[in-house]
């Protein structure tokens, strides 16, 4: 799949710098994500992948730089604009981050009740449809997060992220902790939802198979900067870390699996 023909990027990060005390994590990160694109975000441990994702969704403030999401500078928004913008993206946290005191259905209904004035039965039905769309059985809807397996929690978290029909979906290590079959199924699910809902997806991942399976382009965090390209571009890169990443045994196996 080729990135959609939008001239205006959905996300544009420019001149981003992040510093924690003396430690510089990002130093001049620039990249953009086009509409309908699936962007993978990779990098070694401690290179600030999750930090970058948290900065884009506004959970953390970068030290310097500009982040535009859907054409809006996220740091120049009033409270109301921020909430309106947040309704247009969904985020899946690593372990689902479901509210433990609510059932799965109630979790999905939280944003719907908060941000819309839809009738209760429609909200209920939307929640049930989302549960079905992420491939959970209808009996899972009435369960509490602690009664679900890790993979089911991720699916439930995805359903909650999709509750408001967002345009952008942020995923933090969606396949981490899943068995290979579960991980494949999850990749497939994200790919299908992306296509049928026309989502733009940004995912932090360590899973090379996911990169090959669903990512259109990949942003690699190396040397505090970002290198962006398709897998084929990156395979040709001679930066040592990128080379090792894609040409290491796991990278080769994932590449071979793609055929």
């Amino acid at each position: 799949m080729i990135a959609g023909g939008e001239d205006h990027p959905v996300i544009r990060v420019s001149g981003l710098r992040t510093r924690f005390g003396q430690q510089v994590v990002h130093d001049g990160v620039d990249f953009s994500v086009a509409k309908g694109e699936v962007m993978g975000l990779v990098g070694g441990s401690g290179t600030g992948k999750s930090v970058l994702l948290r900065e884009i969704v506004g959970l953390m403030e970068p030290t310097e730089g500009r982040i535009e999401v859907l054409g809006r500078d996220t740091r120049q928004l009033s409270e109301r604009e921020r909430i309106a913008l947040q309704a247009r993206w969904g985020m899946l946290f690593q372990d689902g981050a479901l509210f433990s005191s609510l059932t799965v259905l109630e979790n999905i209904q939280v944003p719907l009740k908060e941000h819309t004035s839809l009738p209760r039965d429609l909200i209920e039905e939307i929640a049930r449809v989302k549960v079905a769309m992420v491939g959970l059985g209808s009996e899972a809807g009435d369960k509490y997060p602690s009664q679900l397996s890790g993979g089911m929690r991720k699916r439930a978290g995805l359903a909650r992220a999709l509750a408001m029909d967002p345009e952008i979906l942020f995923l933090d290590e969606p396949t981490a902790g899943l068995d290979p079959i579960g991980a494949n199924a999850f990749d497939e699910l994200i790919g299908n939802l992306q296509k049928s809902l026309g989502l733009t997806v940004v995912m932090v991942t360590h899973d090379l198979d996911s990169l090959y399976a669903i990512c259109d382009r990949i942003a690699v965090l190396v040397d505090k900067k970002v290198v962006v390209g398709t897998i084929d571009d990156l395979l040709k890169q001679d930066h040592p870390w990128i080379h090792d990443y894609f040409h290491g045994p796991r990278g080769r196996a994932a590449g071979a699996a793609r055929g």
């Binding site: 039905e125 049930r128 449809v129 989302k130 079905a132 769309m133 209808s138 296509k195 049928s196 809902l197 026309g198």
Partner: peptide, 16 residues
């Protein structure tokens, strides 16, 4: 593309 989404939702709502 809209048709596909509609079908997807119909499939999901049937299982409810």
């Amino acid at each position: 593309d809209l048709c596909e989404l509609l079908r997807e939702v119909q499939r999901a709502s049937q299982g409810i």
